[in-house]
Every structure is written in structure tokens, then in C-alpha cells.
């Protein structure tokens, strides 16, 4: 008898402990499943749907489906990767993602996923949103045009920082992050550069001021190893 149970991911056995989601178990075992709104320190959100997999023939988000013994999970298939590519294209056209002008480029999860899934074009007609930028805070800038509604900042501020600086408001494509102050400006909150929420954005929507383009091209987070290669090298760590 072993302490571990296993499920099958693309035909390979993956060990897991009870309570882990498919995504958590897969990442811990060094098997990459694309994901964007997931963060190991936070409860599953399940909104970006990049981690959509087929569990015993049924589609589900790997970040929200609990691992169970004997499950057969399909992830790295042309069909699912095709769906993921479309989801990325949707995010790219919904916001304004001009990589050459973004300080996050090279360390951006959205971009890294697009590379990994070989997304060569955003394909759909661009929405060209015109969302105001909040540069009011002395240390942090927010460009809402890059926001992908993953709510990681909302969650981090609430759950880690205990500050509740952000909330998601609106509906449908009018969804947007709002700031919890009467003026709606970041400067009028107790937000600080040291907050978890200041460093959790997977894209370039929340950025520290005055440190843009600090890492040279070629040495940035995803320049050498792709996001999937890195995940595969990170076996056993909490990811």
C-alpha cells in the first residue's frame, strides 16, 4: 500500500494527495497545464479557463476539479490547445496588449502562454478599450487596459494584505476592477508597494513606478526557458 493515489494525465500517472486539484497535483509533479488566474497562494478562481481539461470525457477547469483516483485527464491535446489559443486571442483583443511598450514584457504570463501555445495572431477584431489609467499613487501605476479580470489583486489585497483595495464591478464586457475609495483613485487608499497585491498581477496592469525595463532582453523571466519548461523543472515545489 502506498500513501499516494494517482490519476492519469495524458496517459501518464500523476500522484496526488486528497484535496489537491488536478492543476495543483499536475504542477507539483512537474506536468504543465496552461493556467493564468491560478496562484498557489490563493483559492481557485476558475475564470480564465486556460486550464480547461477533459476529465473522464467531461470538460472542466483543472484548477477547480479535485483530483480523484483513477481519473483520466486529457490536457495536451490539439483540441484543448486550440481552445486555449482562442481564449488567449479573446483576452488579447479585449484589452490593449501592446507588448513592445509594456514593462512586463518578457515576464508576462499572458504573453508567455501565447508563446507556449504558439499564438501568432490575436485573430479577432480588436475591442480597443479606453479605460482610464490610474497613475495617482506615488509608487504604483495601474493600466486597466491590460487587465484580464483574474481578480488576483482583489484576492491578494483582501486575503493577504487585509486591505480590500480592489473589487470587480460591472457586467459582461463592461466588467472592470474598481478601487475602494470615494475618489476611485489608488492614492486615496492605504495601498502600498509592499502589498502582495502590488506584485501578483500576471500581466502588466499593476506595475511599480520607476523600475520599467530593468531586466535586459534575453534575461527576463520567460526569455530563456518557456513557461511550460520552467513548470516542468519545478517538480515538487509548491507551484
Amino acid at each position: 500500500m502506498t500513501d499516494f493515489e494517482t490519476f492519469l494525465l495524458d496517459g501518464r500517472p500523476v500522484r496526488f494527495t486528497r484535496g489537491q486539484t488536478i492543476l495543483e497535483a499536475a504542477l507539483a509533479a512537474g506536468h504543465y497545464i496552461p493556467n493564468l488566474c491560478h496562484h498557489p497562494e490563493f483559492r481557485p478562481h476558475g475564470s480564465c479557463k486556460l486550464c480547461t481539461v477533459k476529465v473522464n470525457g467531461r470538460l472542466g477547469a483543472a484548477c477547480t476539479v479535485k483530483a480523484m483516483p483513477g481519473q483520466e485527464v486529457a490536457s495536451d491535446t490539439p483540441e484543448l490547445n486550440g481552445t486555449r489559443r482562442v481564449l488567449l486571442q479573446m483576452l488579447f483583443v479585449e484589452g490593449s496588449h501592446f507588448c513592445p511598450g509594456c514593462e512586463k514584457s518578457g515576464a508576462c504570463k499572458l504573453q508567455a502562454l501565447a508563446y507556449d501555445l504558439e499564438m501568432l495572431t490575436p485573430h479577432f477584431e480588436h475591442f480597443y478599450p479606453s479605460r482610464p489609467i490610474d497613475a495617482s499613487h506615488p509608487d504604483v501605476l495601474i493600466d486597466f487596459n491590460r487587465c484580464i479580470m483574474c481578480e488576483l489583486c482583489v484576492r491578494a489585497s483582501r486575503e493577504v494584505d487585509g486591505k480590500n483595495v480592489f473589487a470587480l464591478a460591472g457586467r459582461g464586457t463592461a466588467s472592470h476592477v474598481v478601487i475602494n475609495s470615494a475618489s476611485g483613485k489608488l492614492v486615496d487608499t492605504d495601498f502600498a508597494l509592499s502589498d502582495k497585491a502590488a506584485h501578483v498581477c500576471p500581466v502588466g496592469a499593476i506595475l511599480p513606478k520607476r523600475v520599467g525595463f530593468a531586466v535586459p532582453i534575453g534575461e527576463r523571466l520567460y526569455d530563456v526557458d518557456s513557461i511550460s519548461t520552467q513548470a516542468e523543472k519545478r517538480v515538487g515545489e509548491e507551484v
Partner: peptide, 10 residues
């Protein structure tokens, strides 16, 4: 995707 010139779109 429009690139830099498209940054005038707003």
C-alpha cells in the same frame, strides 16, 4: 495587432 500606431486608438 496594430502595434504602436494603434496606441492612438483611445
Amino acid at each position: 495587432n496594430g502595434g504602436l500606431p494603434a496606441q492612438r486608438n483611445h
